[in-house]
Amino acid sequence: MNIKFDPNNAVIKLCMIGMGLEDSGNSEDAITMFHKAWHEATDDYERFIAAYHLARQQKSTIDKLKWMETSLQCAIKINDENVKSAYPTLYLNIAKCYEELGDSENAKRNYELSNSAKGAPSDIGPFYHGTKADLKVGDLLTAGGTSNYKSDLKMNHIYFTANINVAGLAASLAKGEGRERIYIVEPTGEFENDPNVTDKKFPGNLTRSYRSKEPLKIIGEVTEWAKLTTDEQGEWREKLAKNKGEIIN
């Protein structure tokens, strides 16, 4: 199974609406939206995401534990690179629930599972970088440039992703007059999960977004992908305007 995080997925959209309601202090409507997402979920990937958000909303520790364990079981059933980054977060939340319930044995076991699931990303790609820069195969992309989105922000890392939808978004929103481009890249050194997205809205790093201090080597270019409409670009630019630079750079 090869699942890609898609912000246009109906269940993910419902969860994002729920998070918006939550952010505005409307927790009752938020939980209604997460329940709707759960009932409309059609596979384990959608159920794993909906259950995680339902878990976060529970007032009772037992209910929170039940939903977190449901989310974890769905994630394990999927057994896909796209969800493995969520394991440490799910085990950690389960451990905290057991700790609150006074079950130190299960708490300890889940803390250990959370720690053992951590580590450097094991993603093998292919990896992509979206931009408007005109580059060629063999060129190196290096850290130290200015952000694609915030001209006063200097980047200490170079960012890339294994999700072509995310690279397409980065290309669409990048500064410059050139055409949108997605390059296929190869990391030349170690890389880590992008902390600007990891655990921020969804568990783990579902968008498979990474960053490195080492250069990325361009090994090819993607010519066909689903581009954003003008309206979608406008929506994302609005989100970025409200943002403090903590988004796919």
Rank of each mutant, 00 (worst) to 15 (best):
N2H: 12
I3D: 05
K4Y: 10
F5V: 00
D6S: 11
N8I: 01
N8H: 12
N9G: 00
N9V: 06
N9A: 03
L14K: 13
G18Y: 00
L21D: 01
D23F: 09
S24N: 13
S27N: 11
E28T: 15
D29L: 14
D29S: 14
I31R: 10
K36W: 06
H39F: 14
H39I: 03
E40P: 02
A41I: 03
D43L: 09
Y45M: 09
I49D: 00
A50H: 05
Y52W: 14
L54R: 08
Q58P: 04
I62Y: 08
L65H: 01
K66I: 05
K66Q: 10
W67S: 03
M68K: 03
E69I: 01
T70I: 04
L72W: 01
C74A: 15
E81V: 12
P88G: 02
T89Y: 04
L92M: 14
L92F: 14
I94S: 05
Y98E: 10
A107F: 03
Y111Q: 09
E112N: 15
L113R: 12
N115Y: 12
K118H: 08
A120D: 13
D123S: 14
H129D: 05
K132Y: 09
V137R: 15
D139W: 08
L140E: 14
L141N: 05
T142N: 15
N148W: 00
K150M: 11
K154P: 03
Y159R: 04
F160L: 11
T161K: 08
I164G: 05
V166I: 14
A167F: 09
A167W: 02
A170L: 10
A174W: 01
K175M: 10
G176V: 10
E177D: 15
R179W: 07
Y183D: 07
V185M: 07
E186P: 06
E190C: 07
D194M: 11
P195S: 13
N196R: 06
V197L: 07
V197D: 02
F202S: 01
G204A: 06
S209P: 03
Y210F: 15
P215R: 06
K217V: 05
I218P: 00
E221L: 13
E221N: 06
V222P: 00
V222A: 13
K227M: 12
T229N: 08
T229K: 02
E246M: 08
I248T: 01
